[in-house]
Structure formats: C-alpha cells, structure tokens
Design a protein around this nucleic acid. Structure first.
Lengths: 150, 150
DNA sequence: ATTCAATTGATGTATATACAATTATTGTAG
DNA sequence: CTACAATAATTGTATATACATCAATTGAAT
C-alpha cells in the first residue's frame, strides 16, 4: 500500500497538516475494515464491541448511559440505541436505577463477557498482522497522537 | 486532553497494538468533529467535501463513479449517492458517458470550485489550531501511518 | 448471431453518527 | 408548596457506511 499519495492517487497536499488529516482518516478506514471482518461473523459492530469493553471495564459496577457515552470513541453518539441492540442479543442487561429513576444501570452479562473472551484474541492476532509497526514505533505513534490532541 | 488513557478513562490496554488502534479511532473522531464544524455551516458533509476535492483534482477531466470510489477515504462506500446529493446542490454535474452508456461522467461545477475556495482556507486555519504538532512531528506521523499500513 | 459472463452504476436494508427535540424525573428558588 | 430549571435518557430526522442485490450495458465465446 505504501505512501498515502499513492493510496488515494493524489499527487500532493496543500500542507503537511492536511496530509496528516487525510492520512489519519485513511488509516482509520483501513483499521476499522479489519476489525469488522472479525466482529461481523459474531453479528456485532465495532461500536457495540466498544460498549461491551467499556462495560467490562466497570468490573461488576453498573454504568449509566451517560457514563458509557463519556468513554466512547465517537464523542456525541448514541449509547442509548447501542445498548438497545446489545440487550436484544442478551449481551447486556439494563435496569432502572433505584435511587434515581431518570438513570439506568447497564451491566454486561456472562454471555457478553464470553463474547469478549472469544473476540479479543482474534482481534489481537489480526492487529499484529495488519499493523506493520514494531513496539517502539507504536509507542512513538501513541505519543504523537496524544500530543496532536493537545 | 492529553493521554488516551485519561481521554477515555481506561486504566490500561491489553497491548500496545490495541492502544494504538483505540488512539487512532479516538483521534479520528477528534479531527472529524472539527472539520464538521467548518463544513456544516455550508451544508456539506466531510464525505461530500472529500468527493469535491477528488473531482477538482481531475483538472477538468470527468471522473466516473468507480474512479471516485477508488480515491475515497472510506473504501467501500457509496459514491453514487454522494454524487446525487452534490448534484442536488449544483456542486457537480453528472452526464451519461457517450462512448460507454454504463458509465457516468461526473464534473465539479464552478459553484463547487467556489465552495472549495471558501472552505479550504478555513480548514487550514482550523487544522493548525487543533493539531498540536510541529511540521517535523507531522512528517514523522505521516511516515508512521504509511508504514503501519505496510 | 446468440448466449453468457463481466462491468458499471443504482437501489435496498441494517447499522451508526450527529444533532435537535421531547419526555420523565429530580433539584432548587421564591 | 409550586414553578421553573437541570439532569438523564429516549426518540426523530438527515446523513453516511457496508454490504448485497439488481438492472442495464458491453464484451467475449461458441
């Protein structure tokens, strides 16, 4: 695949900022495509997978919709409907919060935990296969991305 | 904002590959959010903006739907419907290709070119504001992303 | 020349995003 | 206590993605 200029057949960019943005968008699409190839056979989307991991990170404590939203990768999205979809598959359960009836308590189920146990090794293997960087380079990339956002 | 661990309130990652994927997805969302803030007042989406830039890159030569698709950042998407939306706004025109009636010739209009002239300086200013990296770091980032995809 | 395959684009469906608007509940000020 | 504001989640709408399928046109083989 190589350089971004070849990948999207664009001769040049206005400036290096623009090039970096395009490169990031393109790489994002590259990675999401691979992730989806693992998740789709289990009928789960990347976003649903993300929500499941957030819920497991709660270690048994329930999370409200707002708490899930806050931790999601896509900032202003719609955790409510994602939780709906996951509940329909028995991967999470959702109960009215007793001390505040505006809130809902969302918990991952055993079935949800088992699905994560199945998926995560597959994702890990795939990541190593399609990310052609060594650990030191990944550390560097992570540092640059953190700094980019300021 | 700082480190990705704080941004999404996750203590640690399984491995550095996983962390890099999450960091990329999160940074993607960060950047697209800002781009949208410039594009939305002109009633145009990031994807439509991308198609307009591809068409301008043709320098007067028409592009088929397949050619647009090939250059798009989101690989297997739907250029056909995006062109529809742009045509409804008179930003592109679409004609049946005379020598092969399966194909369509898509061209950017003067109105489309003027919109790009309006938007691009705004995007450039915004990019410099929200991307907290210097040019050397951006070169490094671009190199890492290119290498990541192999 | 006719048939069958390949190409090109359009369309249908499910999912998700980005907002705005709405509903229900809780908190607070007068 | 009542009215109003703030909070939490749901719902509605427009847009886009990811596929799969379909229709039309063209190319190729017999």
């Amino acid at each position: 695949m190589g350089k971004i200029e070849e990948a999207i057949k664009q001769a040049q960019f206005k400036d290096v900022y623009n090039k970096a943005v395009v490169n990031l968008l393109y790489t994002h699409s590259y990675l999401v495509g691979f992730q989806t190839s693992v998740l789709k056979p289990q009928d789960i989307s990347p976003e649903q997978y993300n929500v499941l991991r957030i819920l497991r990170g709660q270690q048994g404590k329930p999370a409200t919709i707002a708490a899930i939203q806050e931790r999601m990768l896509n900032t202003m999205s719609n955790a409510s409907r994602l939780v709906d979809k996951l509940k329909a598959k028995d991967l999470v359960k959702r109960d009215e919060c007793p001390e505040n009836r505006r809130k809902v308590d969302v918990l991952i189920t055993d079935k949800g935990l088992r699905l994560l146990d199945l998926l995560e090794p597959q994702i890990a293997i795939l990541n190593k296969k399609v990310i052609h960087l060594e650990e030191a380079e990944l550390d560097l990339l992570n540092g640059l991305l953190d700094k980019l956002r300021g």
